[in-house]
Amino acid sequence: MTLVDAAQHWLHSVGLYLRWGGGLVAGSWLACAAPRFFVEVLYVLRPAPSRPAPDPHSASARWQAIQRDHDRIKDEYRRLRIDPFRADELAVLADLTVPEAVALVQGLAAASDAADTANPPTYEKAVLHLAHSWRQAQARAADSELQAPSDRSSEPRVCTPEPAVQPAQRRPCPPIPKEQKCR
């Protein structure tokens, strides 16, 4: 046997050992991974549960939808009350001589009272009335914002507590008195 034959025989043996070792490693990996693989396949192929779809007209779904509408309107009104950049719009909705503002306040009170009761038709009716009055109040505030610049330029602004003053107009504050020097 020559040196070349011995090298070939050694390389052939190493190749066999590597193939067998790799085969054993691959086989053990497959033995460990196969159950997980089959579980995943069975999970994907399982039949869908035969649960009925929730009825969107059920009482609880309607009650939740009405509550969401009520909360949405209350949140929008609350954001309006704290937003300093919407002062003109708030001035219209805070003036209780404006019929839309009165209807909005009454609608908020009625919806809050109806929410305390467990009578869904009454609550739904109150929230629908509130939504209608909210839309009317927003339209009135938008109309007064559009008319306010022309009204402001044509009428003198006077600091009076009379209700005849347009609610969108801002009354000027009295001047701050100057400090007097002590003698």
Rank of each mutant, 00 (worst) to 15 (best):
H129L: 14
V92W: 05
E100G: 02
D55N: 05
I73E: 00
C32L: 14
D5L: 00
A141P: 00
R68E: 09
S28F: 10
R81G: 09
D83Y: 02
D95S: 02
E124S: 10
E100W: 01
P56C: 00
D83L: 02
R19W: 15
D5M: 01
A111G: 02
N119H: 08
L93K: 00
H70Q: 11
S150V: 15
D116T: 12
R140V: 01
A101G: 01
S112P: 08
A111C: 02
D88V: 10
H57D: 15
E124W: 08
A31H: 06
Q169E: 13
A59S: 12
P149T: 01
V14F: 03
E145I: 03
Q166H: 14
S154P: 02
V98K: 01
A87K: 03
A139P: 05
L45P: 04
K178S: 13
I176P: 01
W20C: 12
T160D: 07
A34S: 09
L18D: 05
M1W: 09
P161V: 10
W10R: 04
H9I: 07
R140T: 01
L108Q: 03
A53D: 05
V102T: 06
A110R: 08
H12Y: 03
A115Q: 12
A110Y: 04
R79L: 14
I66L: 07
E179V: 08
A148F: 06
I82S: 12
R51T: 09
A137S: 03
P35E: 00
N119T: 13
I176E: 11
P99Y: 07
A48I: 12
K125M: 12
P163G: 04
Q180I: 15
W10C: 04
S112N: 15
D88A: 06
L42H: 10
A33Y: 04
W20Y: 11
H12A: 09
R183Q: 04
S50D: 14
A59R: 14
F38A: 08
P163E: 11
G23F: 04
L108P: 02
P49K: 07
S144P: 05
G23T: 06
A33W: 06
L90H: 01
A126W: 03
A111T: 02
Y43I: 15
P167Q: 00
L18Q: 08
E100A: 04
H12N: 11
L96K: 05
P56N: 02
